[in-house]
Amino acid sequence: MYKPLLILTASLALSLPALSQAGAKEDFNEVYSKVESTHNQAGTYQWTTTANQLKAAKEAADSGDYEKALEMAEQALKYAEQSLEQRKQQQEKWPAVAIGN
């Protein structure tokens, strides 16, 4: 009676590493495209820090290490978001420090 359940559990346990790797790849691709779009939205306010981090994340993904790639992409996303925030803030704040404003 318990046999099917046992088999199911066992097969799940066996496929878990592959599943998590596949999950990381999907997660990475999702975060990566989010970084790209945020980085693009930053326009002329892009950071080299983001660009370098994005490149390193891509390299990790190309070598198949999606766990590491995901971690790096998440950091890149933080950089990109901060650069976008800088763009929004600076467009309002700059006249306060300008000569002749």
Binding site: T49, Q75, K78, Y79, Q82, K93, A96, V97
Partner: peptide, 13 residues
């Protein structure tokens, strides 16, 4: 100090 030139080391990571 809003006009400082010191980088926001923590905020900007």
């Amino acid at each position: 100090n809003p006009v400082t030139v010191m980088p926001p080391f923590g905020r900007n990571m």
